[in-house]
Amino acid sequence: MTELQFADEILGRLQERDPRFHAKAYLFVLSALQSVVNELQPPRHISGSELALGVRDLALDRFGPLARTVLEHWGIHATDDVGRIVFALVECGVLVKQDEDRMEDFRDVFDFEEAFDRGYPWGVSH
């Protein structure tokens, strides 16, 4: 089985388990995780709130004023959804959690409307 076949199989299982999230939502959360960890010296395990903020930052960087629209199209409407995606990835064996990691770590980390609409940094380069 190739890596691509493996990835497609895992994404298929994830979408069967929770069809409200598009496959791209899982891949985007993994990209945000990698982005946050890459910025740490030395790399370490990150908290749910750190990852949620990383999703926000990466979405703003990649999609600008359309960040909220793109995330919501993929099924991510709040930071709790980031947690649901992370714990689904843990259950599938893609990610590993520590004993202290909880779904509650992702609850209300930031408000999507505030972060992506009212708080959008118009004219500020990232």
Rank of each mutant, 00 (worst) to 15 (best):
H45I: 06
D108N: 09
Q34G: 02
A59C: 05
F63L: 08
D99Q: 09
Q5D: 13
L40Y: 03
E72A: 08
L4S: 12
H22W: 11
V55F: 05
A32M: 06
R68E: 15
E114W: 08
E72Q: 15
L95Q: 00
G83D: 04
S125N: 10
F106E: 01
D99T: 06
R20P: 10
T2R: 07
E9R: 15
F87A: 01
L71K: 05
S47A: 12
G64C: 06
G119R: 12
A115Y: 10
I85N: 02
V86D: 00
M1G: 13
H77N: 07
N38K: 05
D57I: 01
F28T: 00
G93M: 14
Y120F: 15
S35N: 12
V37H: 02
K24E: 12
D111N: 15
D18T: 09
L40E: 11
V109E: 11
G93K: 13
A25G: 02
D108W: 10
R56S: 04
L11G: 03
A23T: 02
V82E: 15
D61R: 10
F28G: 09
G83P: 13
A59D: 12
F112H: 03
P65A: 07
Q98P: 00
E104T: 04
Y26E: 05
R102N: 06
L30E: 04
C92K: 13
G93D: 14
R107V: 09
R13G: 04
S125I: 06
V55L: 03
G64R: 05
P19K: 13
G93R: 13
Q98V: 08
D80T: 14
A115G: 10
F106R: 02
T69G: 06
E91S: 03
S31F: 02
F112S: 00
V109S: 10
A88G: 08
V94Q: 01
I10Q: 03
H73Q: 15
R68D: 14
S35K: 11
R20F: 13
V94R: 01
T79L: 11
A7L: 15
V109H: 13
R68C: 11
L58Y: 06
L60A: 05
F110E: 12
D105V: 01
A7G: 04
F112I: 07
E113H: 14
F28K: 12
A25V: 04
L60F: 01
L4W: 12
V124Q: 05
Q41S: 08
E72L: 05
L71G: 03
M103G: 10
S47R: 07
A67N: 05
D111R: 09
R84Q: 08
R17T: 01
D18F: 05
W122D: 09
V29M: 00
H22D: 15
I10S: 03
P65D: 12
M103A: 15
M103V: 02
L95P: 01
V55K: 02
R84E: 06
H73E: 15
W74F: 13
V36E: 02
D80I: 07
K24S: 12
D101L: 05
T2E: 13
V109T: 12
L40M: 07
E104V: 00
L95V: 01
D81P: 10
Q34I: 02
L58A: 11
M103T: 04
L11Q: 03
S31I: 03
I10N: 02
Q5P: 05
W122R: 11
R56I: 00
C92F: 14
R68S: 15
E9Q: 08
E72W: 03
W74H: 11
R56P: 04
L66M: 14
L4E: 15
A7Y: 12
L30F: 04
